[in-house]
């Protein structure tokens, strides 16, 4: 396959950035999207150019490090897929592909396609945990958990923190990310004591980071590589409302 890439290049936070066009030839359909970029970067290095900086690590769809907006869609049009798991067989020969970083004020660009997602860590810091110091836990079987609850908690807990939800949301909202953690911990008995204070603290932190508000467009869940369902946000809303009416 031969492809034309239009890639966002930005040398640093203070650079304005621009789209740059590259031609990549002899792409194998079995390559992953990132391997295709690797091939381009190897060439750029040898040509004395600056290779395209992009975040990636596990390359198996679980670490949440990679992420780019491909042809206007976070992680590309293939559903429930991270960028690293996207393969070139889903693109047409001679296609033109635009590649942009996640765009949101709370995710400032570090370089090219690399953004700073530390806002997510601070949302978790605000309350995305159960306060249980190591060594203080009772026997694991002391509290049975309904299978349905455990499964639903797991569904929410699969969030990989990649930020695609924010990138796709027309409002730049981090609601799906925040809701996923709130929902995960609301559904297990261990999360109950801190349930409402957690929801309040995390939502307030999300606001403080400068993310937009949710308008229930569902763009987030559509691009979520783990398919975190939209009802997580309803759960978050419910807990937040209860927390505020106390």
């Amino acid at each position: 396959m031969n492809l034309t890439l239009k890639v966002w290049r930005q040398s640093g936070p203070s650079d304005a950035g621009r789209m740059v066009t590259y031609r990549v030839e002899d792409v194998s359909p079995d390559m992953s999207f990132l391997e295709m970029l690797d091939v381009l970067n190897e060439r750029l290095i040898l040509e004395g150019d600056d290779p395209i900086a992009f975040d990636h690590d596990c390359r198996e769809g679980i670490c949440g490090m990679c992420g780019m907006v491909i042809n206007g869609v976070a992680h590309g049009e293939q559903r429930a897929t991270t960028t690293c798991q996207l393969h070139m067989r889903h693109f047409e020969d001679d296609a033109t592909i635009t590649i942009e970083p996640w765009r949101a004020a709370p995710f400032p660009v570090v370089k090219d396609l690399v953004v700073d997602r530390s806002a997510f860590d601070r949302i978790i810091q605000a309350g995305g945990f159960v306060s249980v110091p190591a060594g203080s836990a009772p026997d694991a079987h002391s509290i049975p958990v309904r299978k349905e609850d455990a499964d639903a908690a797991f569904d929410a807990a699969t969030c990989i923190g990649c930020g695609a939800c924010v990138a796709a949301c027309p409002n730049g909202s981090a609601s799906l990310f925040t809701a996923a953690k709130i929902t995960h911990l609301s559904l297990v008995p261990q999360g109950q004591p801190e349930r409402l204070s957690r929801a309040k603290a995390m939502v307030d932190q999300m606001d403080a980071e400068g993310f937009g508000g949710c308008t229930n467009t569902g763009e987030c869940t559509a691009v979520c590589p783990k398919g975190i369902p939209l009802d997580a946000i309803a759960q978050m809303n419910s807990d937040y409302l209860k927390a505020n009416s106390k």
């Binding site: 159960v130 079987h141 908690a153 297990v188």
Partner: peptide, 19 residues
């Protein structure tokens, strides 16, 4: 296992609610 469960790690469970 005790520690992880107390943290809310959603391990697979059986219908009786046990791990």
């Amino acid at each position: 296992i005790d520690q992880a469960v107390a943290q809310g790690v959603p391990f697979a469970r059986e219908y009786g609610g046990l791990l």
